[in-house]
Every structure is written in structure tokens, then in C-alpha cells.
């Protein structure tokens, strides 16, 4: 018989009364499940598609192409001197990971109802795994961006592109910021969707509207000064601009705005964790 992995801790089951009941230990105990779920996402998602993982590249690429044609060529929206393709690719680099995480986690409760009603594991495992498994798409997107960036740089370095520098090292921190924000909002939405299924249908619009309210397809500098305080209340504004600053050297958001974004992210994440955990405890009773 194999040696016992760890001594069984005595578990007490009782109704939870406290507001914040965050069980880090059980998440650690289920780390293998998290990694297996991430693996499953990788292998299962594109298993029956012809192009397979190529979709990771094609998705943002096609979106960028559409943006370039519609917003830059037809509507003539300024990109502040940055080559449009690069401008949109950089904007999408900041936006897609956030919106993918939001989309993937916002169905954590309703989408796992079948599983949750049959077996216990920490209810935070699926959203965390979804957040991690979307990192692959982010990586591929980053690579795509870098290929275009290099191509532009080599073909005579137009204005509006900074040379690579130390700032690039800040991108992982930005990615963490996006992940936590996406997760926080996703958890809040997931809790609401569990109660009001109507939200499932609204969510798509919501994300789209949010994108247009964020300087993804237009530069921050085009936002009228008297409206900038509203833009600052959108935590994604600072994230997108910071992404541009990291890679292109063009972003121009005050550090106070970034600080506010961090505070809002922390707040949303805390709110998400609290309401999600509360809802998850008795969620199966209402399905």
C-alpha cells in the first residue's frame, strides 16, 4: 500500500456564517486538479477544429484587420501616428486576455452546475483554471504582435514606435493586472448569472460596450479632457494605455489613473471572491 500522502485533517461541516470564508489551503490541495483542467482546456478546445491552435493567431489577427479597415481606413479615426495595424494589435493585446478571462469565468457557476451538484472540490478551481488556460492565447497573441512589431521596425521604423526597452519587462505585471480584473468581474457576473439567467444574453453586449468605452480602437489622447475623469473610472483604460506605453512608448495615462485602476481592480476582485464563494455554497440547492 502506498504511503499516505498527507494525514487526513479533520473536517467540520457546518453552516457558514462569516462573510469572508476563504479557504486557501483547499485550493493548494487541489492544485493538481487546476493544472489538469488547464491541460484539458488546451487539448479539448481545438481538438475537432481543422485549423487547431492556429485559431489563437487568427482570432486577434482578423479582428485587427477588421478594425484597421473599418476604423482607420473608412472612418479615419486617429491612431496618434502609430501604424494602424500595430496600434490595434497592441490595443487588442491589452484587451483580449481581460475579456477572454471575463468571458470564461463569468459562467463558472451556471456552466458547472452539473459537476458542482455531484462532487465537492473548491468552487474557485474552475475560474482559476480558466484564467490560467487563457494565458496560452495571450502568449500567442504577444508573439503575433512581436512579429508585426519587428517587421515594422525593420522596414524603416516609422514614428510612433519606440525601440524595445526595459519597459517590456513590465508586461507580465500588466498581464497579472488584466487577469485579476477579468477574474474579479467574471466572478461577480457569474454570481449574478446564477441568479438571473437573463444576464447570460446581456453579457456579450456588455463586454463589447466596455471595449468601446475603453481606448482600444482610439488613443487616450482623443478623449476630451473634461471626460477623462469618467475614463479614469474604467479600470481598463489605464491597462490598455499602459500596454501601449510598454510596447510602443505612446500611452499617456497619468499615474494617478493607473493607481485608481489598481484600487478598483482590488475592490472588484475582493467583491467577486466574496459573492462567488457565498453563492457557491448553496448554489446547488437552486438548480
Amino acid at each position: 500500500m502506498p504511503d499516505p500522502i498527507e494525514p487526513p485533517p479533520a473536517v467540520t461541516i457546518r453552516p457558514t456564517r462569516s462573510w469572508v470564508d476563504f479557504d486557501w489551503r483547499s485550493l493548494v490541495a487541489y492544485r493538481d486538479l487546476i493544472s489538469l483542467l488547464v491541460q484539458r482546456d488546451f487539448t479539448a478546445r481545438y481538438k475537432q477544429t481543422v485549423l487547431g491552435p492556429l485559431w489563437y493567431i487568427l482570432n486577434p489577427f482578423i479582428t485587427t484587420l477588421v478594425f484597421t479597415v473599418v476604423f482607420s481606413r473608412i472612418m479615419g479615426i486617429s491612431t496618434d501616428g502609430t501604424p494602424p495595424m500595430l496600434f490595434y494589435l497592441c490595443g487588442m493585446l491589452g484587451w483580449s486576455y481581460f475579456s477572454n478571462v471575463l468571458g470564461a469565468t463569468s459562467n463558472s457557476l451556471a456552466g458547472n452546475a452539473g459537476l458542482f451538484s455531484k462532487v465537492y472540490f473548491p468552487r474557485l478551481v474552475p475560474p482559476i483554471a480558466a484564467t490560467l488556460s487563457n494565458l496560452l492565447a495571450l502568449g500567442v497573441q504577444l508573439a503575433t504582435f512581436l512579429v508585426f512589431y519587428t517587421q515594422q521596425l525593420l522596414s524603416g521604423a516609422p514614428d510612433g514606435i519606440a525601440a524595445p526597452g526595459w519597459r517590456w519587462l513590465l508586461f507580465p505585471l500588466l498581464a497579472v493586472h488584466m487577469a485579476l480584473l477579468g477574474l474579479g468581474v467574471g466572478l461577480v457576473l457569474s454570481t449574478l448569472t446564477a441568479k438571473y439567467r437573463d444576464l447570460q444574453h446581456i453579457q456579450g453586449f456588455l463586454v463589447q460596450l466596455w471595449m468601446y468605452a475603453t481606448p482600444v480602437i482610439y488613443p487616450y489622447s482623443r478623449i476630451p479632457v473634461e471626460w477623462r475623469w469618467i475614463a479614469a473610472l474604467n479600470p481598463m483604460t489605464a491597462v490598455i494605455e499602459a500596454t501601449r506605453w510598454v510596447f510602443l512608448g505612446t500611452g499617456s495615462v497619468p499615474s494617478s489613473t493607473y493607481l485608481l485602476s489598481l484600487v478598483l481592480t482590488g475592490g472588484l476582485l475582493a467583491l467577486g471572491l466574496i459573492v462567488y464563494q457565498r453563492a457557491a455554497r448553496t448554489f446547488v440547492d437552486t438548480v
Binding site: 467540520t12 461541516i13 457546518r14 455531484k118 465537492y120 448553496t282 446547488v284
Partner: peptide, 17 residues
């Protein structure tokens, strides 16, 4: 369901060793 921690009890307590 309560014993396997799928849902919480409304009252009472269970100790699992």
C-alpha cells in the same frame, strides 16, 4: 450531499476524521 460537502447544512455540525 451534505456529507460530501456539495451543499451546506442549514443547522448542525458534522465532524469528519
Amino acid at each position: 450531499k451534505i456529507l460530501s460537502r456539495i451543499t451546506e447544512p442549514t443547522a448542525g455540525e458534522i465532524k469528519l476524521r
